[in-house]
Design a protein around this nucleic acid. Structure first.
Lengths: 228, 228
DNA sequence: GTCTATAATGGGATAGAC
DNA sequence: GTCTATCCCATTATAGAC
């Protein structure tokens, strides 16, 4: 995480504290930045707003992040890092397809619940056609999605799940789970609450899991009815 | 469509042509505006860009739409008008649930295919928390969604479909169909094409329909296997 | 209705003192 | 590393001639 090129090992405590301070400031800035970018988009977000919320001056912020674009790309990098780390679940293609799918849906929904701003910033970029981040998506996200789709296809070839269009199955799982972050404002209006509750996510998880398992014809063992 | 308050009936052809001209200019502007707003968001879009693409000067555009906000709200109004007109399908709750669901999914996907910019502008607004358009969403969209959800619940109560969470069923249908407009850039990258093809939408429709019908336990009669 | 000119604002970025 | 001051540019919006 932190760069390892500290040139003054003799003052370890002081420089360490300084480094810690800098890291803390940077993460404060990034925490506010992801929210502001999610609320207003790249152009709509202003450095001044981010700085104000993080409790420092605009010019001081620009000491840590020399340009708005660099800050934005760093925000997206962190979003991807977090998401990719959580989504390494389909790396076990030999497990039960039902278990893997359940875990995948659960992890993706959890990301929507815990990091809604991250999800939204990424969505905004994709909707706009990924003008600033298309390269990273091509290099980091697309290969992962393709790998997951290949796993689905192996399962189909081995007769472990019913034949479906694996690519679109991935797209729909992505769409359903993602929307609980991106469209939560509209969902909250329909449900007549200020924001989505844990319960809503649990109910969503149950339904999405049932839909996916039903279409690939894997017995649904989640919940209510248990074998006697 | 055109306003009927023409004050000079004696010059019907001239004033009519003028009115026609104005309408044509307005619709040209709106056509470009929805694209630019979809590509860059509200703040990122500039009047100058819209005017340039529509083939007139920035100041001239502002003669027809006195402010950026008014233009934006008019764009969103038109998006909603189009969408609401197409989505009046669940108004026939006595038809076969399977037929209604098929038609609904098909119409929503068609909207994503034919009006991707409209879909994206709306999505951008919702993701940002609907700061400028929340009132209209509450007044026009939410009641419609609630009505559709109530239809699902009537079907469940009558035993015509399996018991599911009707609200989240609506959310997932919305999510899956919407994403074929909003996330088409990423989908195209995964599929290694410049843009989605008609075929992709057809395959999506098949899978989404199968998923929805499977989870509500309605026999799926779409396609491949027909009774002899 | 369309043009030129211009206000007025806001935001990103830089320079330099401390 | 943090602050003050400032530059520079893009953009919305208005005024007024034709």
């Amino acid at each position: 995480m932190a760069s390892d090129k500290s040139p003054a090992p003799q003052l370890k405590s002081a420089s360490g504290r300084r480094l810690q301070n800098r890291d803390r400031l940077e993460s404060d800035i990034l925490l506010q930045a992801v929210r502001v970018f999610a609320e207003s988009g790249y152009e709509g977000a202003s450095i001044a707003t981010i700085a104000e919320r993080a409790g420092l001056s605009k010019q001081n912020l620009m000491y840590y992040f020399p340009s708005k674009q660099q800050l934005y790309q760093r925000v997206l990098d962190d979003v991807l890092d977090d998401w990719l780390a959580r989504m390494d679940l389909l790396a076990h293609p030999d497990d039960e397809p039902g278990d893997v799918l359940r875990a995948y849906i659960s992890a993706k929904l959890r990301f929507s619940r815990e990091q809604p701003w991250a999800s939204r910033v990424y969505a905004l970029e994709v909707i706009n056609g990924a003008p600033l981040y298309g390269g990273q998506i091509r290099d980091r996200v697309v290969p992962l999605l393709r790998k997951d789709i290949a796993v689905f296809e192996q399962w189909i070839a081995a007769g472990r799940i019913a034949p479906v269009n694996a690519t679109h199955l991935m797209f729909t799982i992505w769409a359903m789970t993602q929307s609980y972050a991106d469209f939560s404002a509209q969902m909250a209006l329909v449900l007549d609450r200020k924001q989505l509750l844990r319960r809503d996510f649990d109910e969503a998880e149950q339904l999405i899991t049932r839909m996916v398992l039903a279409v690939v014809a894997v017995p649904d063992l989640t919940g209510e009815k248990k074998p006697p």
